[in-house]
Amino acid sequence: MGVFKKNGSQTVWFENPPVIISTASVVGPQEGEGPLGKTFDKVFYDTYCDEETWEKAEQRLMLEAMKKALQKANLQEKDIDFMLAGDLLNQIVSANFTASALSIPFLGLYGACSTMYEGMALGAMLIDGGFAARVLVGASSHYSTAERQFRFPTELGVQRPMTAQWTVTGAGAVVLAEKGSGPVITHATIGRVIDMGQADPQDMGAVMAPAAADTIVRHLQDTGRAYDYYDLIYTGDLGTYGKKLADHLLRQQGYDISDRFTDCGILIYSGAQDVHAGGSGCGCSAVVTCGYLIEKLKDGSYKRLLGIGTGSLHSPCSVQQGSTIPGIGHALVIEAR
């Protein structure tokens, strides 16, 4: 049997497009105060989220998002075939510990900040492949846990460069199902890892922009679609400067998508919040997708979205040893039904 659900080199299409039957987003205070504040299901007004440590707070965010997504779909844990989740922390502890509180067969994922899109792509494949009827997908990040692991203690006085981004404190969760009502996932374009020789972890937009641009071009070539088939094309967390770079790279290859191109990291905070280049982290694309973008599909503002979850694939050790940073971008087509 040939590969009959794959178009071109990187894009899979779904025969019976899996349905996003429910989504949930839970965020911290700064995200709640941002321009998308009203689109989130729950806002914690303290970054500890009623827990003792920031690590536990991040698990709390993810668990609440998962439970909320189940509750909104009127489902129990036993109704879910698989849970796919990941986060930024070592050994993806936030996802592992959340899974230990839910009795659902679990596959842990790491795609850095692209994890939500990696998870939704895999979840859609599990469903359309006939291996699952319902899949729960989630991703989380927390400003303070990411700062500690990747940068400095949170109370240390440092001056961040203007290209630095602010890790989103938040978690998003999605229930995908073979049938039901809601937006559907029709295609997924799995990204290639691209290392353009950038090595600055304070400028992740520059690391990820080539991977995002590559996936967008691949997607349009694989599907034979013009970019204006989509009402909106957005990336996960390129930030202000990363988006400019992706725009530039796309134009170099003959695609000018700038009239409908945005980025979750730019949408989530306002300029007045002093976050420099915008939001980042697994939670960034997760909460903006699960809150704002799904809302826009449901109210009819948009019909077809092309979303690219972007990830910067470095560790603190790889950076200190002077390695350059590879980036990745996974694209999903989400259409209103």
């Binding site: 203007m162 290209t163 353009m196 020789g197 950038q198 400028d203 520059a206 080539p210 400067y241 400019k244 770079l245 530039h248 790279l249």
Partner: peptide, 13 residues
């Protein structure tokens, strides 16, 4: 990589 680095340094504030 070199070409890209040049673009990055142009875009970077």
């Amino acid at each position: 990589r070199k070409e890209y680095a040049a673009i990055v340094s142009r875009v970077k504030p």
